[in-house]
Design a protein around this nucleic acid. Structure first.
Lengths: 155, 155
DNA sequence: ACTGAAACTTCTGACGT
DNA sequence: ACGTCAGAAGTTTCAGT
C-alpha cells in the first residue's frame, strides 16, 4: 500500500493522467509503448497505492459565478494548539476557501478564497472570518490577474 | 459555445464531476435522476461549452518527490507592461510554479511553488527568480501545514 | 426533452510467452 | 513482467414517446 516503486512507465502514465485524467488505457498504451492491459494494471496499482489520489473535473470558475479570487492572510489571536485547531475547523467547513496554509514567518496563515463579487468577499471577511474567536487580524488582497493556475507536478 | 444555460441537473453533474472526474454516465444517472444517455449528452454539452475545462488526475505530491510547498511574494523592478510581460513569461515556463497571481496592494505577485527540498528552493530563488531582469525583490515563506487544498467551487 | 435499446468503444482478467 | 484475446462494462447514437 505504501511501497512506491515508480519506474519510467509509471512516471509517464502519471504525467499524462495529470494532464488529462480521462485518457483511456488505449490512449495511454499508444503514448507509453505498452499494451493497454498493462496500462490498466499499472494505473490500478497507482490508484491503490494512493499515488493517484483521485480524478477531478476542472470547471470554469468565472462562468460558474466566482470571478473573484482573493488572497487573505490571517493572524491568529493566540498561538496555542487549541486555537490553531479551532481555526483549522473553521476553514475546513467554509466552501469558499479553496486553499489554506500555515506559514513560516510573520503571517500565520494564508487563504485562497473564491467569491462571486466584492460584496460577498466583504461579508465573508467581516461576518465570518473576523468575528471568529480564533482570529485576531486579517489582510485581504484581490487577485488582479491569474498568470498560472495548475496543480501539475513537474514530473 | 458560450451560452451557459446551467439548470439544476447541470449543476448537480458539475458538482459530482468536480468531486470525482471518473464517474460513469451510469453513476451520474443514478445520482441525478436522469437516464445515462441524457447525462452523456449534458456532459458533452458542458465540455463543448467549456464549463468543464478538462479532467485531471490528482497525484500525491509528497510521495512523488515534492514535499515542500512555498509561498513566494515578488516585487517587480519596474511596473511597466513590458516588465510585467517578461515576468509572466518567466513563471509560465517554470514547472515548479503551480500558481501565480498579480495582487492588489503592496506585494506585486504571489507564487505557489513546489520543491523536493530546501536546497532546491534556495536554488530556485537565488539562481532563477532573483537574477531575472524583471524581478527586484522576493520574500519566501515555507508552508508548515496544509489545512485545505481543493480546487472545488462551492456550487 | 427525456427514455430505452442497439451499436460501438473501452476495460480487465485469464492465459501464454 | 508483458502481450493477446475474449467477456464484461461503459458510452453514444437513434428511434420512439
Amino acid at each position: 500500500m505504501n511501497n512506491a516503486q515508480v519506474d519510467g512507465y509509471d512516471r509517464k502514465i502519471l504525467s499524462l493522467l495529470q494532464a488529462d485524467g480521462r485518457l483511456t488505457n488505449n490512449d495511454l498504451s499508444e503514448r507509453v509503448n505498452l499494451s493497454s492491459s498493462q496500462c490498466s494494471r499499472r494505473r490500478q496499482r497507482l490508484e491503490e497505492e494512493g499515488l493517484i489520489k483521485g480524478y477531478r473535473a476542472l470547471l470554469d470558475r468565472e462562468r460558474l459565478g466566482f470571478p473573484l479570487v482573493n488572497v487573505i492572510t490571517v493572524t491568529l489571536a493566540t498561538h496555542n494548539p487549541d486555537n490553531a485547531r479551532r481555526f483549522a475547523d473553521l476553514v475546513a467547513r467554509l466552501p469558499e476557501v479553496q486553499e489554506a496554509y500555515a506559514l513560516t514567518g510573520e503571517m500565520d496563515y494564508i487563504l485562497k478564497v473564491v467569491t462571486p463579487d466584492l460584496k460577498s468577499l466583504s461579508e465573508f471577511v467581516s461576518a465570518v472570518l473576523l468575528p471568529h474567536e480564533s482570529v485576531q487580524h486579517v489582510k485581504t488582497a484581490i487577485v488582479l490577474q491569474t498568470l498560472k493556475e495548475t496543480g501539475a507536478l513537474p514530473l
